[in-house]
Amino acid sequence: MGKHLVLQTDFGTCDGAVSAMYGVALSVDSNLNIFDLTHEIPQYNIWEGSYRLYQTVSYWPEGTVFVSVVDPGVGSNRLSIVVKTADNHYIVTPDNGTITHIKQRIGVIEAREIDENVNRLPNSGESYTFHGRDVYAYTGARLASGVISFEEVGPAINVEQLVELSVPEAAITGDVITGTVDILDVRFGNLWTNVSRQLFESAGITYGDSLEVTIANNTRQVYKNIMTFGRFFSDTHLGEPLLYVNSLDNLGVAINQGSFAKAYHISTGANWKISIRKIPKIIYNR
């Protein structure tokens, strides 16, 4: 197992919480390589924590240990777990849905409940609100450094009983493709959907086609317009919208050099629906 430990939280970096996790991990093994996935998950947003893991985990070496702490139920009776993925990575996290996208799209082959009698920072037993430091960073560091094996994390639990969030599937009904806005390309404000390139192309859509795109939050429509399916952002004029294939091979929605999310106040998750319909090309008589 490599000595790579990757941390993700909704803590931000404006105080000492993340630094404390680093300190605990390095106290276990000063030779650990510790990296940040992100600490800017929106507060309590388990869905986004789940998706960012899916976006990232597969690109790391086998044996890498991820600690993900988006934990609105900290101190409650929710379980603390470590899962082993189908591509041989480990995720240390609350059992609150954080492993949803990994389980459904990569696969989880084993899961164990953290035995806090063994895998908890010494002298922290009366603290109930910082499991990211006391349980997850500590256990993750012990696992990544080889102080404990996966089997020594704690008792095995049934993978099928892990908590999962609702994840709607993209589909084609007649001439309409439907899906969800799963996540934002945050810095640029692009929308990343769950509509795969393969599903999109199976509807007979090719680059350059014009499409009617509708976005709704539950039943409230927030956007409807015509846009082009382009290979590159430069396939449209500055400020124009387009559909494109993102780095996860799914459909994205963007404004060329603008933020689509900010322009139309669009967020993410299972309640944010997108529908796409191909429209005939308009041929003007000369």
Rank of each mutant, 00 (worst) to 15 (best):
T206V: 15
N88M: 06
E152P: 02
R231C: 07
F232Q: 13
Y44P: 01
I81D: 04
I148Y: 07
Y138E: 08
G140E: 11
D182V: 06
N158F: 07
I81C: 11
F150Q: 04
D29M: 11
I276G: 00
A261D: 07
V195S: 00
V245Q: 06
N194V: 01
A17L: 11
G258S: 04
V167Y: 05
T139L: 11
R231E: 15
S80V: 03
D182F: 01
F11K: 10
F66H: 09
E116N: 08
E164Q: 15
P72S: 06
S166A: 03
S196G: 00
M227H: 09
L199W: 01
G269I: 03
S210I: 10
T98G: 12
E201R: 10
I34D: 07
S58C: 01
I91P: 11
P61L: 08
T13L: 15
I34W: 09
G208K: 09
A20L: 13
Y128T: 14
Y90G: 13
V135S: 03
S267G: 14
S27H: 13
P155E: 14
S80F: 03
I148V: 10
S30I: 02
V159K: 05
S127N: 15
V195G: 00
E212V: 04
H131I: 01
A156E: 15
I81K: 06
D209T: 04
V222N: 05
G97T: 12
Y136R: 05
A141H: 12
N190P: 00
G75T: 10
G239H: 06
Y51R: 06
W47D: 09
C14H: 15
Q257K: 06
I266F: 02
Q104M: 09
I106P: 04
L242K: 04
Y207P: 00
V28D: 09
P94H: 05
T13R: 15
V67W: 05
G49I: 04
D71F: 01
V186L: 06
N225V: 01
T139M: 10
S275I: 02
L243G: 03
P94I: 05
L37E: 11
E113I: 12
E113A: 13
V69M: 08
C14Y: 15
I109R: 10
I102V: 15
G75P: 08
L26Y: 15
S50P: 08
R52G: 00
S234Y: 14
I148E: 07
A270E: 12
I46C: 05
V159L: 05
T93V: 12
L79Q: 14
I283G: 11
A254E: 07
L238F: 12
Y59A: 05
N246F: 02
I215P: 00
S234I: 13
R187V: 04
G125C: 12
Y207L: 13
S275A: 07
S202M: 03
R105Q: 10
S19P: 08
T228A: 14
K224S: 14
G204K: 06
R105I: 03
D115S: 13
V153Y: 02
V167Q: 03
S58A: 09
L121E: 09
T56C: 05
R142T: 08
G107F: 09
S80H: 08
P61T: 09
T193G: 00
I255C: 07
I283M: 14
T64F: 02
H39F: 13
V18L: 13
I274T: 00
A86V: 11
T85A: 08
E110T: 11
P168K: 05
E62K: 12
R105D: 09
H4P: 00
H39S: 11
I183L: 01
T38G: 06
A141I: 11
P72R: 08
L243Q: 06
R120I: 11
